[in-house]
Amino acid sequence: MSNARATHLTRRGILAAGGALGLGAVLAACGDDDVKSGGSESTAAAKSGPWTFKDDRGTTVKLDKVPTKIVAFTGVAAALYDYGIEIKGVFGPTTLENGKADVQAGDMDVSKLTVFGNVWDQFNVEKYAAFAPEVLLTTTFDSAGTLWYVPEASKAKIAKLAPSVAISVYDRQLTKPLQRMWELADSLGADLTATKVTDAKKRFEEASERLRAAAKARPEIKVMAGSAAQDVFYVSGTNFSIDLEYFKALGVNFVEPSESAKKATGGWFETLSWENVDKYAADIIMMDDRTATIQPADITEATWKKLPAVKAGQVIGRSPEPILSYDKCVPMVENLAKAIEDAKKVA
């Protein structure tokens, strides 16, 4: 199977719906593709002395000093950037074909980043080794602690070059990984008393209360989390995904595919043909905003255009891989709150 097809399956299949469970099976079906990635140097690590951090796998990394030669998954680097920790070497979706920033790069200036792997299954191990990284930072989407965007084919080589830290974004509410990223930033020397940081946390808490109130006032409004690929449409379940679990806990009324329908994807989502995209009634549709998926404005399927929520203009963006800083999570909570407040009952 070609690399292009493998990328289509992983990014628009498993990843498109915000899930990673079952990814190994998909990749196995595609064969082992070579992988590459890289890293660079961090600035703003003000602390001195030994550095210790226990990650969400239960792994404790100990270094003689606070690391500055850090390699991070793009979304992790973007979150740390919001706390004043600048990491210059990244792997994962960073730049678009036109050179502009991928949505997962947040506020980072991508022109100043060294990108060692921009898409799934790319990781330049040689450059990574030459850089002599002190630590690799990423997330994990499963209970096994699989390192996100670290390729299966080269993970052993990568592991020998530097210890890794993983923040879990699996089967927990958004507030937990947000807190863990906060703790990671703190360990790296971030000033968490800075007004920008404390204001963002306060705004997140206020946005959450607004969403809770909106959901309570309008329990009849049904929300569906979807993702579009060329041949199929994915409907996400609320289990496992940190954003949907959190929104559900705040009272949002979600479309929930049956367990049997989600079985093929390990419980993450249901796959529908475009002909059956109207299987579930929804007043609001949240659509995956990642660049590997087809965005609402580019969907040409007639069945999509006939959906009540689409005809009513009640389609909003969703970040299945949110940048884990309070600043970046405020808009996604506020947008859903506003959508529920303003929604017409159409389904």
Score class of each variant (00 low, 15 high):
A343I: 07
I167N: 09
L178V: 07
L15I: 00
G75A: 13
A77P: 06
V169E: 01
I85M: 04
Y246R: 07
S325K: 05
F91A: 08
S168M: 06
V119M: 10
T265H: 00
Y128H: 06
A215P: 07
E334N: 12
V315S: 05
A214E: 05
V310K: 03
V235W: 08
A297C: 08
V35K: 08
V310F: 03
Y170Q: 05
A159T: 05
S2C: 14
T238K: 10
K196E: 13
P308W: 03
L113R: 04
M181N: 05
F240E: 02
Q173H: 13
I294R: 00
A166W: 07
E134S: 10
G189M: 07
S2L: 11
S208L: 00
G89Y: 00
K176D: 14
N98R: 03
L324G: 10
G22M: 01
S260A: 15
D55I: 10
A200E: 07
I221S: 00
V71H: 07
D142T: 01
D82H: 02
D243R: 07
Q173D: 14
E206Y: 01
G31W: 12
L137V: 11
V26T: 15
V333M: 06
W304C: 05
Y234L: 12
E270P: 02
V76P: 09
Y128F: 15
E41L: 11
R12S: 15
V310L: 08
D82F: 02
A129P: 00
E41P: 00
L184C: 08
V103L: 05
D142F: 07
E256M: 14
V115L: 12
E245T: 08
P320N: 13
V125C: 06
K112G: 04
E97G: 05
A45C: 13
A72G: 11
D327K: 15
N118V: 06
D109N: 14
A44W: 04
G58H: 07
K328N: 12
C30N: 11
S37K: 10
T7D: 14
